[in-house]
């Protein structure tokens, strides 16, 4: 039982990282990306390759993952600088779909659909450690950084961009640099989440980095409440424990378990959006249109 809960907690922490970083670009910079799983995947592959080719040091894997994902985040920053709103959503969807194909084809790096197997257990300074403490530490660090950045000058610049981009530009804020930095920070964080994910499952393949995953992370942010510190974490806990919790219901026939889980999951998403559009943590009075 403890092992099961630890496994669930690790996944919650990893998805918490994903949701928190996505929230950073969505909630604070107004960049609605549906390609977060791409950077999650890049980090996972990079981290897995480090563990497989060099040595399974968790910190090194996370560092490399952050650099790879953060570096390639320019793919996302570029359209973010050109367009906003629905257009950017479409661009990120396009990026997500192309990345899925690339992940399936770049076998040398990703192992294709077969994926990378037998990723060794992580170590820190030569001592084998569980992924749960690492993931919790990374999550805490990212939440801390988010809170700091949010209150600092950078955060205020971002929020001014989100609320009125042209006004921010007129006030002499460097919009392009701020957006690029925000995207890079979020994607690097997603990369770290990816590396931890790879070390946790000791197996990764492209099916964990598809559009459905991106939408799931997005749903976590929205359901929890965009632009709040704890909302995304609540969203991650809720959406991950919902199917796991449903798996314990005894009266559903074996062949329909999956469908019923999915239906409840979908219904929960829709009903929450109808009755609490600002998210669970979000302040309803501020439920503004952000697109």
């Amino acid at each position: 039982m403890t092992a099961y809960l630890a496994n669930l907690a690790t996944l919650v922490a990893i998805f918490g990282i994903l949701a928190a970083t996505l929230n950073f670009v969505v909630g604070f910079a107004g960049i609605f990306s549906v390609a977060h799983a791409v950077f999650f995947g890049l980090g996972a592959y990079a981290g897995a390759q480090v563990a497989l080719q060099l040595f399974p040091d968790a910190l090194l894997a996370c560092l490399v993952a952050a650099i790879v994902a953060g570096g390639l985040s320019l793919c996302l920053a570029l359209p973010a600088l050109r367009v906003r709103g629905e257009y950017f959503v479409a661009a990120s969807l396009g990026l997500q779909m192309m990345a899925t194909t690339l992940f399936s084809e770049a076998k040398a790096f990703t192992g294709g659909i077969g994926g990378l197997v037998a990723i060794p257990r992580p170590t820190v300074a030569g001592v084998e450690v569980g992924v749960l403490p690492l993931a919790l530490a990374a999550l805490a660090l990212i939440l801390f950084l988010t809170a700091r950045l949010q209150r600092g000058a950078f955060g205020r610049t971002l929020q001014s961009i989100r609320d009125a981009e042209s006004a921010a530009e007129a006030l002499g804020k460097n919009v392009a640099a701020a957006k690029t930095l925000a995207v890079a920070f979020a994607c690097a964080g997603a990369g770290i989440g990816g590396a931890l994910f790879a070390l946790h499952l000791s197996f990764v393949n492209v099916e964990s980095f598809t559009m459905d995953q991106s939408v799931l992370v997005m749903a976590m942010v929205i359901i929890g409440g965009t632009g709040t510190l704890w909302g995304p974490l609540i969203g991650a806990i809720l959406l991950l424990s919902l199917p796991s919790g449903l798996a314990f219901l005894p009266f559903i026939p074996a062949t329909e378990v999956g469908a019923v889980q999915q239906i409840v999951y979908g219904l929960a998403m829709t009903l929450l959006m109808i009755f609490r559009p600002a998210g669970l943590v979000g302040d309803l009075s501020k439920g503004r249109a952000t697109a």
Partner: peptide, 11 residues
């Protein structure tokens, strides 16, 4: 509720 574009998307 003036839900955002993304609220619609998730729903």
């Amino acid at each position: 509720h003036e839900g955002s574009f993304f609220t619609v998307f998730v729903a």
